[in-house]
Amino acid sequence: MKELFSFFTDYSFIQNAIIAGLLSSIACGISGTFVVVKKISYLSGGIAHAIVGGLGIAYFLGINPLYGALAFSIVSALLIGTVKLKLKQNEDTLISALWAVGMSIGLIFAYLTPGYNVNLLSYLFGNILLVSSESIYLMLVLDIFISAIVIILYKQFIYVCFDEEYAYLRGIKVELIYILLLIMISLTIVVLVQSVGLVLVIALLTLPSSIARMFSNTIWKMILISIILIQIFTFAGFAFSFSTNLPSGASIILAAGLGYLLSFFIQSFLRRNTIK
């Protein structure tokens, strides 16, 4: 036991990985819940991929890629939100366009950056062992911000997600709340960049919360269950990748996928028992 403890304290990258896992679970559980109940996983996927553009530009300018991701996440949330609200018919096409154009911008800027940078790959597919202390602070700040948004706007988010028309009737600023929801989701994607990466992030946003929905009768319970599930999947995946030397992001997503499958069996088993 003492050896295990010293193992954690001696290797600061493992400490960082564990803290990063805990911090990402909070943001991801909150935003994932709203992605699932509002059915905007495609839109969130679009934002995630568009953020690659920000990473590429940041590389090119020689600043911390996470700040590039942060700036691009807010811009793409505003862009997709406005597009969805103003041009309802072409929403699908426009999200796909932003998705691909964002990635292309990122790849072109990464290509233009002198010296090939392998790190870009770790932002696409995540590597929880590479999380720096600076990133941990950024994640912490984002977590506090996201938690504050959801506590203050809890009811308004639920009204807009459950019934937009009734929310409008009650004088709620539906469009503003919707955009804030997208910004919250984009910031969460930035938090998750290092643990699972931009390409895989959509699975960690949707799978745990979809499981949580099967066992929840309120949004805050769904958030709480999501957070716990994300922690389980993250650490199961992390432990698996650490012992087998396989990529951590992919391992975490596989753990989530397995959990999702398992939850179907549990649910159908429970249902069969209640019918009896």
């Binding site: 009811k155 308004q156 009650r170």
Partner: peptide
Amino acid sequence: GHSKSFLP
């Protein structure tokens, strides 16, 4: 609900 329905 209304536009100032804050907190859960």
